[in-house]
Nucleic acid binder design. Structure first.
Lengths: 110, 110
DNA sequence: ACAATACATCGTAATATTGCGATGTAATAT
DNA sequence: ATATTACATCGCAATATTACGATGTATTGT
């Protein structure tokens, strides 16, 4: 075994978990924060900024791209990355929805 | 290799990623949603609710417990789980902080 | 005391993730 | 044409995750 049994869960549960999984690595958090803070797109200061090898960063960027969190366009010899605004808004919604569901339990037993 | 190089990132990046990682499995999302929806604590309808084996669910509960997302108290023969309200609020803050940082880029190039 | 219930933990197999050197590819510079 | 730059991809080793049967451990019921 060792495979996540996605068939047991709802589409939305799998989607939320999938996005969380992509966010579940500090390098990818760092990349996203970098994209959030530099208000414009970036053409890879990333390799200098993070301490990881170029191949490793490229791989993380791919995961973010495949989850559609970021998008990139070729800009001459380099590639220009930025967040996908529509997707980012949707993800924000998804998580807000989860977090806001909390209410204090009527019968606190723990 | 194959080990996340946490030493390259800030404490807060590692923490956010760590929480996201815990949320990055549909079973754990399902458990959390279950805890959110039943306004009271639950004493394992989980094994019946989700389709996973008891050992597997116990393992997921442990991860949630170790990340302090949930807390459980022994209630006779069973264990009663609920969300950790303080921690949940803190996590909500952490994610809101991330999501709210988005502003439209001045120079959209992607 | 003995069985039943509700877990937790152990051990293990299957699979996924992480990181990086090596190599491939396309665009620009000389 | 050749070199350089800025990536992407491949292949692999190290490690982590997922799932579950088997087994251990309290607590309750009889």
């Amino acid at each position: 075994m060792g495979v996540t049994r996605t068939e047991l869960f709802t589409e939305s549960q799998n989607e939320l978990a999938g996005i969380a999984k992509v966010l579940g690595h500090p390098a990818r958090i760092a990349i996203i924060q970098h994209l959030l803070e530099s208000k414009t797109c970036i053409c890879s200061d990333l390799v200098n900024e993070l301490g990881l090898a170029q191949a490793t960063i490229s791989q993380h960027l791919r995961e973010l791209r495949e989850a559609e969190l970021i998008q990139g366009t070729i800009e001459g010899v380099s590639v220009c990355y930025c967040l996908n605004p529509v997707r980012w808004a949707a993800i924000t919604e998804l998580f807000n929805n989860l977090f806001s569901k909390y209410t204090n339990p009527a019968n606190p037993c723990c």
